[in-house]
């Protein structure tokens, strides 16, 4: 047994259909209690599939899963029935980009939060309502007593996002999964929600995996960043390491493409091409077709995982040659 909150070992997820999609390919990741990690990657890189695998939300018939996922030592790929229900929304809960996925339009906000608390904590309705009220206060909803009686459609976008966070945290999960919960929000509201999540994470001490395609958001929310490409983690480290000393050519390209502090008229260092289609399992570096440093050795087999520092890894043959930016 370890003291890790989450351990993913050699996770592979394939979707079967007319064409097989190799969505996740040999992904390993660990998270300690109370750590915040951003899973950073472009559309289709496998961020949401990773979170769904963690919550066992993938369609069982069409999905092939290999590997091992342990949360607090429990093998969650083997959970079923009641223990699976207890796990979802109890130890681990999730917030989504679209609150409609989590909030039921026909129940008031208070009733929904109370219902979840009753189910997982076995308390009375009135106790559960008190928890709901306390949660609305913690997510800083103005006049929370009145808002308990509101239906989701009576709230603004930012407020619905706060309610969804209140719902997700009401049972004090040890692990919170967040799938782009601020992407659809206005900039001035997004930063409010990010700071709120940061504050609640400190207060409750839960571990957080925050999925995003926006490096700026990852920097604001997380202590660690794992960069995904084509269903694999190509680089991982502390947020500072990833921003100040990116080693993987893809990470460096992403940072350059962020346009932070790029002067007008300067030609952008764009990464050529587009991500691969994932119709075959990668047998060599997936980034090679777009990589300026690629050589025949990169196409000969999967690149080794280099570990320049503890808990720091880069899946690239040239990780050590790479000169830090600046």
């Amino acid at each position: 047994m370890t003291d890790k909150l989450l351990e993913i070992d050699h996770l592979t997820v394939r979707f079967k259909g007319a064409r097989t999609i190799h969505a996740i390919n040999d992904l390993s990741l660990s998270l300690g209690e109370g750590e915040t990690l951003a899973l950073l990657g472009e559309s289709g890189s496998g961020k949401s599939v990773t979170l769904k695998a963690l919550l066992r939300l993938l369609p069982p018939k069409r999905t092939e899963i290999e590997g091992d996922i342990r949360v607090g030592g429990t093998d969650i790929l083997r959970l079923s029935g009641r223990s699976l229900q207890r796990y979802r929304g109890g130890d681990v809960s999730m917030v989504f980009q679209e609150p409609a996925l989590a909030l039921d339009p026909v129940y008031t906000v208070g009733a929904q939060i109370a219902e979840t608390v009753m189910r997982h904590k076995g308390v009375s309705r009135s106790e559960a309502m008190e928890v709901a009220l306390d949660m609305l206060k913690r997510v800083k909803i103005p006049s929370p007593e009145r808002r308990l009686q509101n239906y989701p459609h009576e709230l603004s976008g930012g407020m619905r996002q706060r309610v969804m966070i209140a719902l997700a945290l009401a049972c004090r999960p040890r692990l919170l999964l967040a799938d782009e919960p601020t992407t659809a929000l206005d900039a001035t509201v997004q930063i409010q929600i990010l700071l709120l999540l940061r504050e609640l994470q400190k207060e409750f001490g839960m571990g957080v995996i925050f999925v995003t395609h926006d490096i700026g958001v990852a920097v604001e929310i997380s202590e660690r960043i794992a960069v995904m490409y084509a269903g694999q983690i190509v680089e991982e480290g502390t947020t500072r390491e990833i921003i100040k000393d990116p080693r993987h050519p893809y990470t460096r390209g992403l940072l350059a493409a962020n346009l932070h502090d790029v002067a007008r008229g300067e030609r952008l260092a764009a990464i050529p091409g587009a991500p691969p289609a994932l119709e075959t399992r990668p047998a060599s570096c997936s980034f090679a077709p777009r990589c300026a440093l690629a050589g025949p050795d990169c196409r000969a087999g999967l690149p080794p995982v280099v570990t320049p520092a503890p808990r720091r890894r880069v899946a690239c043959l040239r990780a050590d040659e790479a000169v830090p930016a600046e």
Partner: peptide, 16 residues
């Protein structure tokens, strides 16, 4: 409200 892009100097107060 723009993200800071600086892990040593993260945003502390929402502007609005």
């Amino acid at each position: 409200a723009m993200p800071s892009m600086d892990p040593d100097n993260r945003t502390e107060e929402p502007p609005l």
